[in-house]
Amino acid sequence: MKTNPGRFFEDYRVGEVIAHAVPRTVSGGERALYHALYPARHALHSSDAFARACGLKAAPMDDLVAFHTVFGKTVPDISLNAVANLGYAEGRWIRPVWAGDTLRSDSQVIGVKENSNGKSGVVWVRTRGLNQRGEVVLEYVRWVMVRKRDAATPAPEAVVPGLQPAVAAPDLVLPDGLDFTHYDFGLAGEPHRWGDYAPGEKIDHVDGVTVEEAEHMLATRLWQNTAKVHFDATMREDGRRLIYGGHVISLARALSFNGLANAQMLVALNAGAHANPCFAGDTVRAWSEVLDKAETAAPGVGAIRLRLVAVKHGAAPFALRDADGKYLPEVLLDLDYWALMPL
């Protein structure tokens, strides 16, 4: 048999390291397509001149371009037969990715646990993205629900990894040379700086984007994500293609520009959950909550910890969970991350 049916839950072993196939060289084409697919317009990723004024050699690729590219490499080995991608933790952007860099990824299986129905299980992996020099540019943990090939197969011993609730501020890695002392707020699009935000503050990002089937399919192919539930309508009983969770992340991040235009770079992914499925026709809106702030060693640069929530149209403002602590059905994404912002 020469074709690859993908791995099923019983094929994973804790401690196994999987080197993922097909390195990818990224270019200005990925940047242009990313900005065409999402209303992304943070200045540091849009303008070489703006980035050079902030101490960088050029505009790096959008942080989520790096994430989606690294993530996409893992799909044939980790989530080809996934029911759903469930969450993220302990993510850090270590180095900027520049046009011309070649990215590859590997993953270590760090946990497995069969579900009570015996038909699927959860697999935890720690993934690294590396450039052409073998330098780590990105790392994160994710967990995914994967179908079993045979429900009669005995369950492996459950191993659930202990994960940190958040990346500590001292462990954030800042790009070499980053300097916001001469930051141009006019060109960036908003006057609000690090000192203008306070923990507990919530921001309604106002705008919305209706998800189109064609755009979702293009985006998922762009990142070479081959998960069957995103393409094959027969994989779900309702006959609907599940929107790739990363598509929702990028939509929400782009929408957050309105109110957080100066949260320029993502440096850590503390936690994340795809709370409910998203389908074509849903209109995605977003709101943020300021969770924490920290100073950094880089001149003029502060770190801000944010909760980014994506919801379907019609959700109540700033509503997240019901009285039992469960996500409301309108909530699509709950993402906790650190970003860099001028002081």
Rank of each mutant, 00 (worst) to 15 (best):
V70Q: 03
G72T: 08
K73F: 13
T74Y: 00
V75M: 00
P76D: 10
D77C: 12
S79D: 12
N81W: 09
N81P: 15
A82G: 05
V83A: 01
A84L: 12
N85V: 00
N85L: 04
G87Q: 08
Y88K: 06
A89K: 01
A89W: 02
R92D: 03
I94K: 10
I94E: 02
I94N: 08
R95P: 01
D101P: 01
R104M: 14
S105A: 15
S105W: 00
S107H: 09
S107I: 05
Q108L: 01
G111T: 01
G111K: 04
E114N: 14
S116C: 07
N117F: 04
N117E: 10
G118W: 14
K119A: 13
V123R: 05
W124V: 08
V125I: 14
V125E: 07
R128T: 11
R128F: 13
G129D: 07
G129N: 10
L130I: 12
Q132I: 02
Q132L: 00
R133Q: 13
G134W: 11
V137R: 10
E139R: 15
Y140I: 00
V141F: 10
R142L: 12
V146R: 01
R149W: 02
D150N: 05
A151N: 14
A151C: 02
A151D: 15
A151E: 05
A152W: 02
A152P: 13
T153I: 14
P154L: 07
P154K: 07
A158T: 08
V160S: 14
P161T: 06
G162Q: 15
G162K: 15
P165T: 00
V167L: 03
A168Q: 12
A169H: 13
A169Q: 08
A169I: 12
A169F: 04
V173C: 13
L174W: 04
D176N: 12
L178V: 14
D179H: 01
F180D: 00
T181C: 09
H182C: 09
Y183V: 01
Y183H: 05
G186T: 15
G189Q: 10
E190S: 15
P191H: 07
H192F: 09
W194P: 02
W194L: 06
G195S: 13
Y197H: 09
P199E: 07
P199D: 14
P199C: 04
E201D: 12
H205C: 02
H205D: 04
V209N: 09
V209C: 06
V211L: 15
E212R: 00
